[in-house]
Computed example of a mutant assay.
Amino acid sequence: MSLSHSLPHDHTHAAMLIYSATRFIVTHQAEHLDSEQLVKRCCAHLMATTGITETAAQHYAMHALAELQAKHVPAYFDISHSTSYVIRVVDPSTGHAYALTASDVLQIAKQQSEGDHDTLRVTQQCGRRAG
């Protein structure tokens, strides 16, 4: 099933789902050791309370988590200078931009899921300074 078919097309409904996910994460974040557990519980909550698919629930839970994390680490993706295969990440505190390929991001995700949570080291291995 493609993600586009499992997400509501109504922007108001999508905003309500993001709000629900955000409230759940804020309420329960102190109960969990890591973001993965929190996202899983948030997905279960969204599926149970709204009847959306697991794929849609993961989308909204990750969206909410990213929004909350962005308040503490103001890095962002420069979409206008990114493509399907390379994402440009900007650190506004230093002004540096880094280019990560899809392969780099996949490597980071695999290492993260295998318990290697040293993302700074992984990012330094993969990231390339962007112009």
Rank of each mutant, 00 (worst) to 15 (best):
M1S: 13
L3Y: 10
L3D: 05
H5L: 10
S6M: 11
S6A: 07
L7R: 07
L7F: 07
H9D: 00
H9V: 02
H11R: 13
H11Q: 09
T12K: 14
T12G: 07
L17P: 01
I18H: 01
Y19V: 05
Y19G: 09
A21W: 02
A21E: 00
R23H: 13
F24A: 03
I25C: 00
T27W: 09
T27Y: 08
H28F: 03
H28V: 01
Q29H: 14
E31T: 12
E31Q: 15
H32G: 00
H32Y: 08
S35W: 06
E36I: 10
Q37V: 04
L38D: 03
L38A: 02
K40F: 12
K40M: 12
R41Q: 14
C42H: 14
C43W: 05
C43H: 12
A44T: 15
H45A: 05
L46P: 04
A48D: 09
A48C: 06
T49Y: 11
T49P: 03
T49N: 12
T49A: 10
I52L: 10
T53Y: 09
E54V: 13
A56C: 15
A57D: 08
A57C: 12
A57I: 11
H59L: 10
Y60Q: 02
A61W: 02
A61H: 03
M62P: 02
H63K: 15
H63A: 06
A64S: 12
L65P: 03
A66L: 14
E67K: 07
E67F: 15
L68A: 01
Q69K: 14
Q69Y: 09
A70T: 14
A70S: 15
H72K: 13
P74A: 05
P74L: 05
A75Q: 03
D78K: 05
D78W: 04
D78H: 13
I79C: 08
I79G: 06
S80W: 07
S80M: 11
S80E: 12
S82A: 09
T83E: 04
T83A: 04
T83V: 04
S84V: 11
S84N: 15
V86Q: 04
R88H: 07
V89E: 00
V89K: 07
V90N: 02
P92Q: 02
S93N: 11
T94W: 01
G95D: 04
G95Y: 03
H96I: 00
H96G: 00
A97R: 04
A99R: 02
D104M: 03
D104T: 03
V105C: 06
V105Q: 05
V105M: 11
Q107R: 14
K110L: 05
K110R: 12
K110A: 03
K110P: 00
Q111E: 04
Q111V: 01
S113Y: 05
S113E: 05
E114V: 00
D118F: 10
T119E: 06
L120R: 13
L120N: 10
T123I: 15
T123M: 15
Q124D: 06
Q124S: 06
Q125R: 15
Q125C: 11
Q125A: 12
G127E: 02
R128D: 01
R128V: 03
R129L: 10
A130W: 05
A130R: 03
G131N: 12
